[in-house]
């Protein structure tokens, strides 16, 4: 099986989407004869080129980070290039991978409905969507992200063998849907810790103090 993977991270260098994909691909290629074509999209020309590659592909995985609860603008530019293909992609398999910093899967559920609708309008077969939160900073700390990366590997492996996503496996990977089960008080303390250990540390590295991080340069 040949899988064409489109990485729509707008970042210029190393990116979390790419790190997740690496693990997915390693799993996918555990099955002999599975082949991967990588298409990187992060500038105007690449969106146009990607549309040509999309048209030629048999099976597609479109991967990107969640930006303001949807696809980044660049990925939308790519999707707009596909307009002439509406209703003409019969038999093409299309799946998605969406990753982001917030832990809960619910943030991507609106987008999921849109992507399914779009895929069907192209007359592609909708394969499903890998939704994974809690991915902020995994490119900087692969060791800490071991569980996340292992999950992507397992999903890739299953997909490589069965040629379809396993819905149960994807749901398990995406969990939690929301934080309903958690004690809000415990969560508050946890967030305070993340803010302190993760974000404040990043401020410090850049010479930004706690107070100046709250700057309001455009206040009326």
């Amino acid at each position: 099986m040949k899988l064409s993977i489109f990485n729509g991270s707008p970042k210029l260098g190393i990116n979390n989407t790419g790190i997740l994909l690496e693990s997915f691909i390693t799993g996918f290629q555990e099955t002999p004869d599975n082949e991967v074509e990588m298409i990187r999209m992060n500038n105007e020309q690449s969106y146009k080129d990607a549309a040509i590659r999309f048209e030629a592909a048999e099976a597609v995985l479109i991967a990107f980070p969640l930006y303001s609860y949807a696809m980044p603008a660049g990925v939308k530019t790519f999707l707009e290039q596909l307009e002439p293909l509406l209703g003409k992609c019969t038999g093409k398999k299309v799946g998605f991978l969406v990753q982001f910093g917030f832990v809960e899967a619910i943030h991507a559920r609106g987008l999921e409905k849109y992507l399914e609708h779009l895929t069907k309008a192209l007359d592609c077969d909708y394969e499903g969507i890998i939704i994974k939160g809690g991915c902020d900073g995994i490119s900087r700390n692969k060791k800490g992200a071991k569980k996340i990366l292992m999950g992507a590997y397992e999903i890739g492996k299953t997909y490589g063998i069965e040629k379809v996503f396993n819905k149960e496996q994807l749901d398990k990977y995406s969990a939690p849907e929301i934080q309903k089960k958690q004690n809000p008080f415990v969560m508050k303390i946890l967030f305070r810790l993340i803010n302190k250990l993760y974000w404040e540390k990043s401020f410090k590295k850049n010479g930004v103090t706690y107070e100046s991080s709250f700057a309001r340069p455009y206040e009326n």
Partner: peptide
């Protein structure tokens, strides 16, 4: 466009 707001408008959303 393609069942969503334009990439042009989405660009500003992202830039907020």
């Amino acid at each position: 466009i393609m069942y969503y707001v334009s990439a042009l408008l989405k660009r500003v959303n992202d830039r907020l």
